[in-house]
């Protein structure tokens, strides 16, 4: 019982963090066809910006300022890099963002050093909020939950209830039509790209001190974000949401299960002493998202809720 409650709670928080990262990527991907390899790098920038700004102004200012800065950086990348490449096709764009990921990581190493920086949870939130089954639950995690849900609601409101959301939704599926109607599609692209990067930055601000702020953090989480986007399906924020939670919960649950292959498949004659039988479920946790990705692309290329194949 304890296991289930804690795994669920931790899994949901991790899943929401993933969603914050992948929502922007999904929008960018479905609108512009750009699979932004450097998206997780903006997540990293968010964490580092928050660390630097926070050491001067405190956490709360950084919480707002860092995502904005990341968004500006994202807009610059779109305006001066990607836009030039649009005519060259998607592979060129993909390669550009791939190179960009390298550059951002190296710049981070130069500016902030090669080892992790001490980006800490703010003192105001660094206390156990409640006790459950004899184990304390840190307040900061609940704060993360609140921020994620607030973002989720804001995003939903923006897309479904405002005029700009309407245009964005239209541009997702019919970019040419929207352009013919006289909207500046390029500017919408830039706006969405910047907003997506800012969301990734926000994820970095609240995730950097929950996990570890180090130069390799982008390359660790980057591929998982891709998994979310593909599994969720093209152009579908709902799909990305479900996929994020699914992956978050799946990974935390796998670690808390205390079983090996031989326990699961013992009825097939798999013995605990054989190598396959000795594999424990927790050790499989890192492979699960990718297994999901490959299976999804093979059997349902549309993803969970995608409107079309990509």
């Amino acid at each position: 019982m304890e296991t289930i409650v804690f795994s669920l709670l931790n899994g949901i928080i991790y899943g929401l963090l993933l969603f914050m990262l992948s929502s922007g990527l999904t929008l960018i991907f479905s609108m512009m066809g750009i699979l932004n390899f450097a998206h997780a790098s903006f997540y990293m920038l968010g964490a580092y910006f928050a660390y630097s700004i926070g050491s001067v102004t405190g956490f709360w200012v950084a919480l707002f300022l860092a995502p904005v800065l990341v968004g500006v950086a994202g807009a610059a990348v779109e305006r001066f890099g990607l836009r030039r490449l649009h005519a060259e096709g998607h592979v060129a764009e993909l390669l550009f963002t791939f190179g960009l990921a390298y550059i951002i990581e190296e710049i981070v190493k130069i500016v902030w050093g090669k080892i992790a920086v001490p980006y800490k949870v703010p003192a105001a939130l660094d206390f156990p909020l409640f006790e459950l089954f004899g184990s304390q639950y840190p307040a900061y995690r609940i704060f993360m939950l609140v921020v994620s849900l607030a973002m989720l609601f804001a995003l939903w409101y923006l897309l479904k209830r405002t005029r700009i959301g309407l245009i964005i939704q239209a541009a997702l599926t019919h970019p040419n039509m929207v352009a013919h109607l006289g909207h500046n599609v390029q500017r919408i692209f830039m706006l969405v790209f910047a907003a997506g990067c800012a969301l990734a930055g926000l994820a970095g601000v609240i995730g950097g001190n929950y996990l570890v702020t180090e130069p390799s953090m982008a390359f660790t989480i980057g591929p998982i974000v891709f998994v979310v986007v593909v599994v969720g399906g093209m152009g579908s924020l709902e799909g990305a949401f479900i996929a994020s939670l699914l992956i978050g919960i799946m990974q935390t649950f796998a670690i808390s299960v205390d079983a090996t292959f031989s326990d699961l498949f013992g009825w097939l004659g798999l013995s605990a002493s054989s190598e396959l039988g000795g594999i424990s479920i927790p050790s499989l946790a890192p492979t699960l998202p990718y297994l999901l990705l490959v299976l999804m692309l093979m059997f349902r290329p549309r993803g969970l809720m995608g409107a079309r194949e990509f």
Binding site: G33, L35, H90, V91, L94, P223, F226, V227, V230, T287, P289, Y290, L291, L293, V294, L297, M298, P301, E309, F310
Partner: peptide, 15 residues
């Protein structure tokens, strides 16, 4: 071909 191929290759590499 295209992006789906790239994504599968990424997933398989990590796997």
């Amino acid at each position: 071909a295209g992006i789906p191929f790239s994504m599968i290759s990424l997933g398989i590499a990590e796997l």
